[in-house]
Design a protein around this nucleic acid. Structure first.
Lengths: 230, 230
DNA sequence: CAGGATCCACTATTGGATCCCG
DNA sequence: CGGGATCCAATAGTGGATCCTG
């Protein structure tokens, strides 16, 4: 199986994704021409890259939805032995200087999260990378309640950034959406406005969804399997 | 100030207790004739004993409410630097053999918790015992919702004990009420019925309230200070 | 022993730091 | 560098063990 072509409809995408359930990363990687390393520390992100190819995602590393034509973002979710998300989910990098003149409705966070295909992947650390299985995929659009939570966190954080208080932000802030470093190492720096609008150099950051939030989302989507009419 | 006499009304008790707010355990201990050791590990329970004397509790170590005439139980709650309960709250020992023929309505847990005077005490471990201050006291009667939670946990746990499954009980069980060891050391043993009703020797245990539960109760009671009419 | 509880080793969580690819 | 994320040291939480007094 070569890397797939882009699916032409939501239905086709979900069908394809669900047909991958049960496959191991080793098999799936081989099918799309990606070798899976032994060491997990040298392979961060590889599950996401394999699934992009297997499902025909087109955006590459451009700032667009993975499935451009469908406006759908692909996210793999690492699950622990109990089936709960093991890690937070990266949403997007933050352009610190652009936050001051952006509204929630135009934000990259809302765009990225408007329609997401979540693909769970086993990630118990004692299971070798190659043996980890793909789970059942779900297409998610935030409910009004979920949007309200995201928006409240985003506005609080955006305001702090716009005010130049980026150094006061820690990963503790935000009930469901948090800001954390997003950099190759701790010494990376980029420009941001400070309290007086002058430039300061600060660490690059990104928005992340907390594991408890993605866990609740997955639980809701799984429950909907039992009530096909809702 | 000598040890107090028993207060004659709820109102008198609460007034007395609130007049202690702000005092340090060292001062209060001196007033009632209790010397406060330096080492906290040698003084478990001393805050409770000082407050019993200061408020005129009468029951001693009998299985009765601390204020017999008023039917009120006294509990000190250790608070961390953030004002949240640091430890679980001991409710009562469990007579394992008596659980089989006891209903919730007659249980010691319900009796003990029907009316409780909670007295918070500072307990940040870097604050010396003598310097820890008494906080604002609150008289608590469980709401219907709180009673429902307590009852559900109690019935589940009582059933396990009655069935002889006491060794299967861990501190993980119970949303607000849990069962944990209550013994001078890990080798204490007492008799309990086993699965077939024969005797088995097991560790003495007690019921405890989880810190998250007492924290929520205190938060509700504090909030009521702002709305005196509710 | 019953009643007053806290101690503290261990587990679970988390958030700052880091790694690969195109 | 932007996009795909996970690693793992440090902190928070918990529950089994323990301590004092009358």
């Amino acid at each position: 199986m070569p890397p797939s072509s882009e699916p032409q409809s939501e239905k086709e995408l979900v069908t394809r994704a669900r047909n991958l359930a049960g496959l191991r990363l080793g098999e799936l990687g081989a099918q799309v021409g990606v070798e899976v390393p032994d060491e997990a520390v040298r392979a961060k992100g590889i599950a996401g890259q394999i699934l992009e190819k297997a499902l025909g995602a087109t955006a590459g590393s451009r700032p667009e939805p993975d499935f451009v034509g469908l406006g759908i973002e692909l996210k793999t979710i690492p699950l622990d032995a109990a089936g709960k998300p093991k890690e937070s989910t990266f949403v997007c990098s933050i352009s610190l200087s652009a936050m001051a003149d952006t509204e929630w409705e135009q934000s990259t966070v809302l765009k990225k999260l408007s329609k997401v295909l979540f693909v769970p992947v086993e990630a118990a650390s004692n299971t070798p990378l190659r043996e980890r299985r793909v789970g059942r995929a779900y297409l998610w659009t935030p409910t009004d309640e979920e949007k309200k939570l995201l928006r409240a966190d985003w506005e609080r954080l955006a305001e702090m950034i716009a005010a130049g208080d980026v150094e006061q932000i820690t990963g503790h802030l935000g009930e469901v959406l948090q800001v954390r470093p997003k950099a190759p190492h701790g010494k990376s720096r980029r420009r941001a406005p400070d309290e007086e609008g002058a430039v300061q150099w600060t660490m690059p950051r990104g928005f992340y969804l907390r594991p408890a939030f993605t866990g609740a989302v997955l639980a809701r989507l799984r429950a909907s399997d039992c009530k096909p009419n809702t």
